Simulated assay, not measured.
Amino acid sequence: MKEDKRINRINLHLNNKELELFKNKAKNYNQMAAMIRDAVAQFNDKGTVKRIESLNKLADLITEFNHEISKQGINLNQITKRANELIYKGELGKEYYEEIILPHVSDLKKMMNNIKKQQSDIFKRLLEI
């Protein structure tokens, strides 16, 4: 007997809704059995777990990103307020800009680049799975 000959049978009980779902999924196949065999062959439990882990990491990253952006927004508001106060007093100079404003802007830029890299890494892992 040939190895690839299909001699084994599986009985599957479906309700009407499930049967319609199977029929709709099988429209591009010659037989529903071919669709089921293909679906089982493509199913990869480890891949699904990795995708879920990556999605959870992405959700955590986005939450962390939102918290950090909120904190940095508060810092920038305080800096802006102080800068406005100093402008009205005529005391805002190059030194303030270089020592206060520029370092915060630089830190924000680094943080944004780091978050973008982390998100990119997670998206790449999702595509590899």
Score class of each variant (00 low, 15 high):
K2Q: 14
E3R: 08
D4Q: 15
K5G: 09
N8S: 09
N8C: 02
R9Y: 09
I10A: 12
I10P: 05
N11C: 00
N11Q: 07
N11T: 04
L14Y: 04
K17H: 12
K17D: 14
E18M: 08
E18H: 03
L19Y: 06
E20L: 04
E20A: 05
F22G: 04
N24D: 10
N24F: 05
N24W: 02
K25G: 01
Y29H: 12
N30L: 03
N30G: 11
N30R: 09
Q31T: 06
Q31L: 05
A34D: 09
M35W: 10
I36F: 06
R37T: 06
A39C: 08
A39P: 07
V40I: 10
A41C: 08
Q42Y: 03
Q42C: 03
F43T: 08
N44L: 00
N44T: 01
D45E: 15
G47C: 06
T48D: 12
V49Q: 15
R51D: 06
R51F: 02
I52S: 15
E53Y: 07
S54E: 05
L55Y: 15
L58N: 15
A59L: 11
A59K: 12
A59S: 14
L61F: 13
I62P: 14
N66A: 12
S70K: 14
K71L: 03
K71F: 02
I74T: 11
N75Q: 08
N75W: 00
N75D: 09
L76Q: 12
N77P: 00
I79R: 02
K81A: 09
E85T: 12
E85S: 11
L86H: 13
I87M: 08
E91T: 13
L92H: 07
L92P: 13
L92S: 13
G93P: 02
G93M: 05
E95G: 02
E95P: 00
Y96V: 00
Y96I: 00
E98F: 00
E98H: 07
E98S: 04
E98R: 05
I101Y: 13
I101P: 10
I101D: 13
L102D: 10
P103K: 10
V105R: 10
S106H: 13
S106E: 15
D107P: 00
D107F: 04
K109G: 07
K109M: 04
K109V: 03
K109S: 06
K110V: 04
M111V: 02
M112I: 06
M112K: 10
N113E: 08
N113R: 01
N114V: 01
N114R: 06
K116I: 03
K116L: 10
K117V: 01
Q118N: 07
Q118S: 03
Q119P: 01
S120D: 07
I122Q: 09
F123C: 01
F123M: 02
F123A: 02
R125W: 02
R125F: 05
L126D: 11
E128Y: 01
